[in-house]
Amino acid sequence: MPLVKGSRIAADTFTRVEDDAPIPEQGAVLVPAARFLADAAELMQRAAPVGVIWPNNMDVSELVPYLDKLALVALVFPIFRDGRAYSQARLLRERYAYRGEMRATGQILRDQFVFYLRAGFDAFDVVKNADAAAFEETAKRYSVFFQPTGDGRLTVARSRLKLHGHRDPAAKRVTV
């Protein structure tokens, strides 16, 4: 399963640690949510990066105390039709100002790339090689966006106002 990061296929530097396995001394680790919450104090002391796999039925506000130190939050799409993690992603990025890597995992397919990007994801565990290879092209599929999200893309409403000679309300803070 190829990882796409920075618009291209990249090596995954994180090691997944199961619930009952010991945490390696060295190297970046990706830990399930329950394990993370149980051992949070210890994990936060690590010098190497720590990431968490956060299921789509847990409230992301629980992560707030750790967001400064988390290197990766992996959100889960168990099937691509289950869109709960889109809300989690926007809340993490836009309400809780999380700036680390946010990875889409699970049933990650080409036709959702634009949605993921707009919701704030910047890394993708893509199921199919062909989809991963098509990432860059697919991400450019759309040039028209209606919703102001944390991705900073110019919305149609703002473009129109500029076009029609109104003052630009751009300065307004994006909040979700």
Binding site: R81, G83, F115, F146, Q147
Partner: peptide
């Protein structure tokens, strides 16, 4: 209509 068109958060309700 415009706001919900291809809404990145609410297309898989």
């Amino acid at each position: 209509r415009q706001h919900v068109t291809l809404h990145p958060e609410f297309s898989f309700l």
